[in-house]
Write a protein that binds this DNA or RNA. Structure first.
Lengths: 149, 149
DNA sequence: CCGACTGGTTTCATTTTGCAACTAATCGGG
DNA sequence: CCCGATTAGTTGCAAAATGAAACCAGTCGG
């Protein structure tokens, strides 16, 4: 692994975007999180849903666990180990939702079908949009990054 | 490259999350997008801000351009080529914001400082939270994915 | 014409990923 | 109690992605 004893080893230590990407910005982690949010619990659940190679899955589950996004819990009956999202893991929900909504808008051709996220009433979840403190919509043009708050 | 002539080659063709991750879910693409949103335009802008290897940057800029997230524009004066976000690229803003906000909440120790996203008035942008059609807050426990809408 | 700068490309070493086969522990019957 | 299936990995190896560094061509300012 890395990032242990001393050095941060972050790609860009004081940018929150970069730190998050360091933790979940690879080809599989976010799909594992997505499946966990959709009810996946066991090693084979994740393996079958994502199609990830087993050794890589092992490594990702360990990494996500090590960074506090997943925990291992003992199954109620039997001795199989199951994985569950921690609070930090569940808190990635807005990230997964915005990724999904962007994909729905831009990664499908006109006629293609795709899965849809719905609330408890079966209604489609509305698009998430950043707003200012006063409620007006924001874009990258109307915001800026202030270094080192 | 790949994903051209015929075969989809998507990791999970009918999941919008997976398609988005296929396009921008690598170590660098989202940081390039982040920097573009923060004003980066030229090859060396991106290279210096991210620290990415030059050959990889070349490849990423081409990939993002090929998929319609960036465009190349000729500079007003001189003949340098510049990159700008397309509408689809700008539309990743909510993704970058949620990644940033998650990082702020979970990827920093108590005392650490980090950059902050502010609106035109200099006020911190409020946390983005998925809500149902009726306005009530949503989590992964109160939503579900309906296959193939 | 000179030297610096920009936007790459090329080469090569290192890492990461993926596949497939193998293993160890449990589980469900019969 | 033994058999075969299932689960959760591990191991070895090949293929692909990444990174560092050197190289190169076309401006640009003087």
């Amino acid at each position: 692994m890395a990032r242990e004893g001393q050095g941060p080893a972050w790609t860009d230590p004081n940018c929150p975007v970069a730190r998050t990407v360091d933790l979940v910005g690879d080809r599989w982690s976010l799909l594992i999180i997505r499946d966990a949010m959709d009810g996946a619990r066991s090693f084979t659940d994740f393996q079958q849903r994502t199609g990830i190679a087993r050794n890589i899955l092992t490594e990702r589950l360990r990494k996500l666990t090590a960074h506090g996004l997943l925990t291992q819990v003992d199954a109620p009956s039997g001795r199989r180990r199951l994985y569950a999202l921690t609070e930090a893991g569940k808190d990635l929900f807005p990230v997964v939702v915005t990724l999904r909504q962007w994909g729905e808008r831009h990664a499908f051709e006109a006629g293609e079908t795709h899965s849809v996220l719905v609330d408890g009433d079966g209604a489609r979840v509305p698009d998430l949009l950043p707003v200012a403190a006063n409620g007006s919509p924001l874009t990258s043009d109307t915001t800026s990054v202030r270094r080192h708050a």
